Amino acid sequence: MKIKFLIFIVALLFSISKVKAQDPIFTQFYLIPETLNPGFSGSSEAPYAGVLQRIQWPSLDLRVETSYAFASFWLEEANSGIGFNAISQTESFNDYRLQQFNVNYAYRVQLSDEWFFRPGIEIGWGFKDFNFQNLLLEDQININTGVNSPTSIDPLTPNTTVNYVDISAGMVFNTRNSWIGFSLKHINRPNISLRDERNEPLEMLLSVSTGYEIKLLDMVDISFLPNEAKLIATGNYMRQGRFDRLDIGTIFDFERFLAGATFSMDVFDRTENSHVLTSINPFFGVRITDDLRFGVSYDVNTSNIGRTNGVYEFSLTYRFTSRYEDCYGCPTYIK
């Protein structure tokens, strides 16, 4: 039993190092930028809510499922946005589970006739959990009675749950049709070690995102295009520890339907066996009503990781009608 436990710990430590270095990420960040930056809280200047569901590598034993739910509100009198979000992630390989609840606040500052500045902060409470209940150690076995004890005094037995406070901050500069945002997550570097006597600070996550939208009729004169048809170019660079990722792509918004693709790349610190382009991520969306939007994306793996069956992601968002619908400072790309 000792050997079995030690093998499990070795596998667990490998998994922890991977989890510690990489936060949950979403392909459809351009639809729900709150996943990246608390500065986007309330940026639609109307009540806005939604959910994201991500299923990663369903054909492998490393299947990862991530759920995200959010709601944000705009307080015009206070020139502020507030938001709430919850995230849950599970991994099949080691019964790992992450759950976290966050509260966001952002303030709008008008810099010029066109530009706005939105600094934001996020404070959250989270816990990481590993399922050790299924382990049976040597000192739990009683050969004489044939009854196994539910507890162990083995010094290697770790805690099953880690609780922590998490603080993040960000800022967004935007006009009605463009934005650039910067965020830094885990500023306080919370300790996520399963051992009481150890300190394993969570790596900070840097994100730089940008986007620009343009009406298609300003580029081409095609009579069958809807008047409000748009092209949205977007990009996001993230770095956490020695891991980084760059996503760039375009989305075509034909009012009722949306379609496009992003490309995910490993920019720096690649090994000789790694790839620059790691996945191609087509996206399709539909506006069920003027305010209700559904989206689905599929990440096509381009590396040699094996037959993973890709990554599926589903989103559903609703933007409530607001009396500030035509406000000049509202970024239109998330409507």
Rank of each mutant, 00 (worst) to 15 (best):
S17W: 01
P24I: 12
S44L: 06
Y48L: 08
Q53R: 07
V51L: 12
G39I: 03
N85A: 02
I32G: 04
N85R: 15
G50S: 11
V51T: 13
A11R: 07
W74D: 05
I55H: 01
I82H: 00
F93W: 02
I25Y: 13
L75S: 14
A86P: 00
R63I: 05
S43Q: 09
S59F: 11
F29V: 01
S88R: 15
A21S: 13
S17G: 06
I82N: 03
E45C: 04
I55T: 05
Y96D: 08
Y30V: 07
K4E: 10
L36T: 06
F70A: 07
Y48F: 13
Q56F: 11
I16D: 14
K20E: 13
F8M: 08
P47D: 07
A46D: 01
T90D: 14
P33A: 04
I3F: 09
T35G: 06
L6S: 01
L36N: 10
F8Y: 12
A49K: 03
I16T: 05
G42A: 08
E76K: 14
Q53S: 11
F8C: 00
R54F: 02
L62P: 00
K18W: 05
F40R: 04
L60K: 10
G39Y: 00
E91L: 08
G42F: 03
Q53H: 10
K18Y: 12
Y48P: 03
G81S: 03
W74P: 00
L75F: 15
I87P: 05
N79R: 15
S80P: 04
Q56S: 14
L52P: 02
I9G: 04
F26W: 12
D23A: 01
F73W: 12
A78Q: 15
A86L: 14
F26P: 02
N79K: 15
A78D: 14
F29Q: 02
L60G: 02
G50K: 10
P24E: 06
N79M: 14
L6C: 00
G39A: 06
P58W: 08
I16G: 01
N79F: 13
F40E: 00
W57Q: 11
Y48N: 13
S72K: 07
I55M: 07
L12C: 04
N85S: 15
Q89Y: 04
F84Y: 14
S67E: 14
F29A: 00
T35L: 03
N85K: 15
F70D: 00
E77C: 02
N37Y: 05
I7P: 00
S67Y: 11
P47F: 09
V19L: 09
A86T: 15
S44M: 08
S80M: 15
D61L: 04
S43I: 08
Y96M: 05
E45F: 04
L12G: 11
G50R: 10
V10Y: 09
S41H: 01
F5N: 04
A21E: 12
P58M: 11
R54D: 02
E77T: 12
S80E: 13
S72Y: 05
Y48Q: 08
I16E: 10
S41V: 04
N79G: 15
Q56K: 14
S41N: 08
I16H: 10
P33N: 04
G81F: 03
P58T: 10
S15H: 12
I32F: 01
I3C: 03
R63M: 11
T90H: 08
D23P: 00
S41A: 13
P38E: 10
W74K: 11
K2G: 13
S44G: 08
W57N: 13
A21P: 00
L36E: 02
F84V: 15
F5D: 03
P38L: 06
A86Q: 13
